[in-house]
Design a protein around this nucleic acid. Structure first.
Lengths: 339, 339
DNA sequence: TTGTACGCGTTATCAC
DNA sequence: GTGATAACGCGTACAA
């Protein structure tokens, strides 16, 4: 029974050379090892199917080749698309993704940031939870990540400060969407917003106001429903708005689905009885039986920008505090009618 | 300027005790350390916000507290729901998820299994890619994981062999669904299947046949479209089946969405012109404007069973070769009409 | 061209 | 009660 060879030490012994030599050869470093021994080492490593122990390597190099990703809810298509894209992009640079779901909870944001930091991630991609943004808890998170000295990029949601961030241009997107509604003759517009603590929500609100102002219109207080970014909020918003407005702007697609659901229950048809627009253009919005007019978030573009930003920050030890805002695209489909 | 304290060594020096003592105290191990020193250690650790280096700990304990998860496509809601559930479940046991997308490619299955193994994951959750299941490439994967000696559980898709696996009872689900169609008077049923190499697909097919046989019915060769589990397959299947059958059984919900999309293009209404059922009951199926009749996969139940199985395998060093098949639930909604 | 020796931060064993 | 000392597996300056 042959002793199993698993470590560099084993290979070194088996080949009658030093560990240094083996290490140099196996890592393809500039070396002056003779071709003969080089081949011998590679051959035995191959034969024994040697695999370096990543943990030990990480300890020695102080590099885990791991990026922590924290999202509020990966079952939301926007985030699962994003995570997929990040994973593929980071893999190109040799990084693997450690994934955490905060479930929109502040406590989990803190818990997972610490956990990932303990796991020595080389970088961090963070979409803060809605709860964190409320009650100014984000200062805690901000201070935490800046104390950890781990390159971090905020994605989609962010808070004031000089952390690098990547997000869609919310104001521009909401502006175009609202303008589209106005151009189609809508004057009574209802809004289902996200949490007002989120800067993204504020941006979308600003876009709406800008478009309204340009058209000399305004929006009634009672036609603005402040909610969260989930499907139930859409349902509840619909309850308050259906019948009172000619168009509903749900601040994300999930909410719009909720509106769709409520409308069906009341036997109302979209866009006949009410027009509807969303935001995000998650996968299913193009596929739903009622194809949703919305603003497309350029997920791939954003994640590419984000990953290259992050990788640069890690590898060049640069403390880039870039703020990248990428425009969304108005996608006109079937959920808006002209009146 | 106070020297920053980051390691156990630092704490030991600062407190004038040995590293052993510090380690014992900080890890809450059974120890006979005096209360005084114990408190002192904890206090300085607290003050300096000491965080253990997980990498070093892993090297010493030979445990990474990390589970590798490989899925074919996390942007598919079935998998993103699953991954979310796994992450939450594993977190309870102190494990973090290293996530990889195989993009349905054999090469990536192999690449990521090796990568995760190098990263010393304590366990592996694997949904093999469709490509792997074709051409008998799965033997490679099977041999690879059994050579690695890493506790592995197959999820959803699997291959013959004694690896532990968790999946929905495909035959039962498809049987109930088909029976439901038959009970509603459908005799001409069209099938859009998944890759026939997948055992799950074979199971669903068996369920269909069983129900047909019981009813003394059969299905025409030309009404079976072999495809893959994505939305485009649904569209293409629809092209071949629409107008020729009274009901279409898409082997997963994504395909059903494709059928929905194609039907709309041709101005056909579901279920008026054709009935439609899917499989999986992914989130959006309950929400679509056309609420889909389908079989619900008990994702939470499956992932819970899976994670506890895996954790037990890891912690008890048990080589459980359990095979857990959980029944799905027929969810009757609006996409089937009685004829 | 190759080898020695130490460091990475933690845990584990045993002796005092 | 406490403290040396040796692993864990790999990387790397420096020496030969």
């Amino acid at each position: 029974m042959q002793k199993k060879i698993t470590t560099i030490k084993d290979i070194a012994e088996s080949c009658g050379v030093s560990m240094t030599t083996v290490s140099l050869v196996l890592n393809h470093r500039p070396n002056n090892v003779s071709l003969a021994t080089k081949e011998k080492i590679i051959r035995t490593a191959d034969e024994c199917d040697y695999r370096p122990n990543g943990i030990a390597r990480s300890l020695a190099t102080k590099k885990s080749n791991t990026i922590g990703v924290i999202v509020p809810d990966i079952s939301n298509s926007f985030f699962s698309d994003s995570v997929k894209s990040m994973q593929i992009e980071l893999d190109k640079h040799g990084y693997t993704v450690l994934l955490c779901n905060s479930e929109e909870q502040f406590a989990n944001d803190v818990k997972y940031i610490k956990l990932l930091s303990n796991r020595q991630v080389d970088g961090l991609i963070l979409t803060v939870s809605a709860e964190t943004m409320a009650d100014n808890q984000w200062t805690t998170v901000r201070d935490l990540i800046s104390s950890l000295k781990i390159p971090t990029v905020l994605y989609d949601r962010f808070f004031p400060g000089d952390q690098p961030k990547v997000y869609v241009d919310n104001t521009q997107g909401a502006y175009e969407l609202t303008k589209h509604l106005i151009e189609n003759g809508h004057k009574e517009i209802g809004l289902i917003t996200g949490p007002l603590d989120l800067i993204g929500t504020q941006g979308r609100l600003a876009g709406v106001q800008k478009a309204l102002k340009e058209a000399g219109l305004s929006i009634k207080k009672e036609h603005i429903v402040n909610a969260t970014y989930d499907i139930d909020s859409g349902r509840q918003g619909a309850k308050k708005l259906l019948g009172k407005v000619s168009a509903i702007f749900a601040f994300n697609d999930m909410q719009a689905y909720g509106v769709l659901d409520s409308a069906r229950e009341r036997h109302m048809l979209i866009p006949r009885d009410v027009s509807l627009v969303g935001f995000d253009d998650i996968f299913y919005s193009a596929v739903l039986d009622m194809r949703l007019t919305t603003v497309s978030q350029p997920v791939k573009e954003m994640t590419k920008a984000l990953c290259s930003l992050l990788v640069r920050a890690i590898e060049d030890h640069a403390t880039a505090n870039d703020e990248i805002s990428i425009p969304g695209t108005l996608v006109k489909r079937d959920s808006v009618r002209t009146i």
